[in-house]
Amino acid sequence: MGDWLSEVANWWFAAVALAMGYAAYRVVTSANVVHAVLALVATLGGSAVLFLLLGAEFVVWTVVLVYIGAVIVLFLFGIMITRAPLGYEAELDHPPKTKALAAIVAGAMFLLIGWTLVDAFGTEEVTASVTTVGDIGLQLFGRFVLPFEVVSLVLLAALIGGIVLARQDPVDIEDQR
């Protein structure tokens, strides 16, 4: 334990992890959707800092750009565009019985995953090998070009399907004429 405390990075880790834990707790307990989304920003930001401590810069920027920059903004836009009620909402909650069950399941999963992860990787050291964006690009357009192309189709299908579900019915438009 003495060793652990003498390392500066570990202090950083502890601080960030505690903050993340609290933010994640707020995501599920907040009765205000917008507050929950902002807490999610803090959680994801914390995970970016953890990746930074591990020396994985590329992942850090991916988390910041894609998750915080795109996904969260999409959430907020979604709330705005669908004119969902903002602010506190009492119905955004479950009965205590359900909550207790959820807490038990979540706690059990946390202990299970945490214990097995520490058991498997607890003594391993992070070797500081730098993966550059160039390396990732070569892999992406070499060996993994097929899944890469398939992902583009997933996105296209999601985009078009989203438009189809969101747009007005052709019949309704005719009715209005």
Binding site: P147, V150, L153, V154, A157, A158, G161, G162, V164, L165
Partner: peptide, 11 residues
Amino acid sequence: GLELVSGPAFL
């Protein structure tokens, strides 16, 4: 591949 199977199916 699995995501491409299920994504359009949701819609």
